[in-house]
């Protein structure tokens, strides 16, 4: 019951955030230089042609009215139509988004599966060669640019060894394993930063737990190192882990833009880039809006999990 009230309350809090996000997106897109009508009209168009197109697309109306129209549509699930193709934006978003989400989720999973044991290992072997190795890998992962690492991976694992396809994507709905095979390398590329972040944060959180006063109490009770680490340690750092997972997911989703470009993946990230270049504003708005919704949802889930995991948070 308390949980249901809490979920309701958090959902209410999300509404203004989403509204603010739409305003921000709309404003940003307006600031992009260039006139979509001029782009559509083509090189030899007269001023009258362009004006006619502007009127037809509704671009001559006041900005606030354009925004209100768009928002009204968005609430009914209509993200308006592409200026270039005239097709509904939502269809294109739904076609491309799965590729991006597959990448992001896969990258997040890799980050967790590698980062968590690495962080814990580094913490238990703190100040040894093993710890130093793990920490250096972690700081390298943060420092190395994603696209550069992606190119290295392509050059060695794909072109060199032929283990993975170099570019492209397969829709997951059509061929599950094919989709994974295509997504593996870009996801690994994306995951390096996440692995690094999770390793670092988990290491320091675990070191803090293990050197805490209550860890000393646990030893004073006669518990084994293993149960201190895996029961109490893990349970306590799971709170940190949850927060870090949220951050890593947001970063990873953002980083898909560059990675999709390197691997020529028809995803949401590359869609933003190409739509922005062709001044297809509704398209940019639509995809960014959906991505923002995903990030907000993810944060909401993390918040709720946090409350479930931390007995102290439920009180607030």
């Amino acid at each position: 019951m308390r949980m249901i009230r809490l979920i309701g309350w958090r959902l209410l809090q999300v509404v203004p955030v989403v509204l603010m996000a739409t305003v921000a997106i709309f404003a940003l897109v307006q600031m992009v230089p260039g006139d979509p009508a001029a782009v559509i009209a083509g090189e030899y168009a007269t001023a009258d042609n362009i004006a006619a197109i502007r009127q037809e697309l509704g671009l001559d109306r006041p900005v606030w009215l354009q925004y209100a129209t768009w928002l009204g549509g968005a609430f009914q699930g209509d993200l308006s139509d592409s200026l270039i193709t005239g097709l509904p934006v939502l269809d294109e978003v739904l076609r491309r988004l799965p590729n991006t989400l597959l990448l992001a989720v896969l990258a997040l999973l890799i980050s967790i599966v590698v980062g968590v044991p690495l962080g814990i290992l580094a913490a238990t072997k703190s100040e040894t060669a093993l710890d130093r190795a793990a920490t250096s890998i972690a700081s390298l992962g943060v420092a190395v640019p994603n696209f550069w690492l992606g190119m290295i991976f392509v050059a060695t694992l794909s072109l060199g060894l032929g283990w993975f396809p170099t570019t492209g994507a397969v829709p997951i709905t059509q061929d599950f394993w094919g989709a994974l095979h295509h997504a593996a390398l870009p996801a690994l590329t994306l995951a390096t930063a996440g692995i690094a972040e999770i390793t670092r944060q988990l290491r320091s959180a675990m070191i803090e737990v293990l050197s805490s006063q209550y860890a000393r109490t646990l030893r004073a009770k006669g518990l084994s190192r293993a149960s201190i680490l895996w029961k109490h340690g893990l349970r306590n750092v799971s709170l940190t882990l949850l927060t870090v997972i949220g951050l890593v997911f947001n970063h990873t989703l953002g980083a898909t833009v560059a990675t999709e470009a390197v691997f020529a993946i028809p995803g949401a990230g590359s869609m933003i880039v190409s739509s922005a270049v062709s001044k297809d504003f509704p398209m940019v708005q639509g995809i960014v809006f959906v991505l923002v919704l995903i990030v907000i949802t993810m944060n909401l889930i993390i918040d709720l999990l946090y409350v479930m995991l931390d007995p102290r948070a439920a009180k607030k």
């Binding site: 805490s212 006063q213 209550y214 000393r216 109490t217 646990l218 004073a220 349970r235 306590n236 007995p311």
Partner: peptide, 13 residues
């Protein structure tokens, strides 16, 4: 037993 009963107990159990 120790001085600080708050920090000496595991907060999440």
């Amino acid at each position: 037993i120790f001085q600080e009963p708050m920090s000496a107990l595991d907060p999440v159990f």
